[in-house]
Simulated assay, not measured.
Amino acid sequence: MMMTERDEQAKTQALIAYLLMVFGLFTGIFWVIGAVWAMAKARDAKGTLFEDHYRNMISIFWWGIGLSIVGVVLALFVIGYFILLGVWIWSVIKLFKGLARLTSNLPYENF
């Protein structure tokens, strides 16, 4: 499949955001930077092959933040640690699936 210049740019920007978020799994601050990058570049990717990758990253960020807050609160009752671990594993899976599909020039979801 032939990609347009807009597709190439959207892919490059998504790759940057994914890599920042993956690095952020271990540092925290890069998680936020990657998500902000994805939010800032999402409009430019509208109508491209990679548009749904931006929705994926933004979704991972907001669900991750929300569930992490729940996990921290519930850490007082031990179950929160399992929630935090689950959020981390879920994030890893979603990010690496996105990276694999992005580098194969595929949208995140099969339509």
Rank of each mutant, 00 (worst) to 15 (best):
M1S: 09
M1N: 05
M1E: 04
M2E: 13
M2N: 09
M2T: 13
M3F: 05
M3I: 05
T4W: 01
T4L: 01
T4P: 03
E5D: 14
E5L: 13
D7T: 01
D7N: 08
K11P: 05
K11T: 01
T12S: 12
Q13V: 02
A14C: 04
A14R: 00
L15H: 13
I16M: 10
I16S: 12
A17M: 05
Y18L: 07
L19R: 12
L19F: 13
V22M: 11
F23W: 11
F23A: 15
G24M: 06
G24E: 05
L25V: 01
L25E: 07
G28S: 07
I29E: 03
F30A: 11
G34W: 03
A35H: 08
A35W: 08
V36S: 06
W37A: 11
W37V: 09
A38I: 02
A38Q: 08
A40N: 07
A42T: 00
R43M: 00
D44P: 00
D44V: 00
A45M: 02
A45H: 04
A45P: 03
K46E: 12
G47T: 04
G47I: 02
T48W: 03
T48Y: 01
F50H: 03
E51T: 01
D52A: 00
H53E: 01
Y54N: 04
Y54M: 02
Y54S: 03
R55W: 12
R55Q: 13
N56G: 02
M57E: 04
I58A: 03
S59P: 01
S59W: 10
S59D: 04
F61V: 02
W62P: 02
W63P: 00
W63S: 06
W63H: 07
W63F: 15
I65F: 14
L67N: 07
L67R: 08
L67F: 15
S68F: 09
S68Y: 05
I69L: 15
V70I: 15
V70M: 13
V70L: 15
V70W: 10
V70P: 04
V72M: 13
V72E: 13
V73L: 15
L76H: 08
L76P: 03
F77E: 12
V78T: 09
V78H: 02
V78P: 07
I79D: 03
I79G: 01
Y81K: 00
Y81L: 14
L84I: 10
G86S: 11
V87P: 04
W88K: 08
I89S: 08
S91W: 01
S91D: 10
V92S: 13
V92P: 12
K94E: 15
F96N: 15
K97H: 12
K97L: 11
G98V: 03
L99T: 11
L99C: 12
L99A: 15
L99G: 15
R101Y: 14
R101F: 12
L102Q: 10
L102D: 10
L102H: 10
T103P: 06
N105D: 14
L106M: 15
P107Q: 08
Y108F: 14
E109A: 15
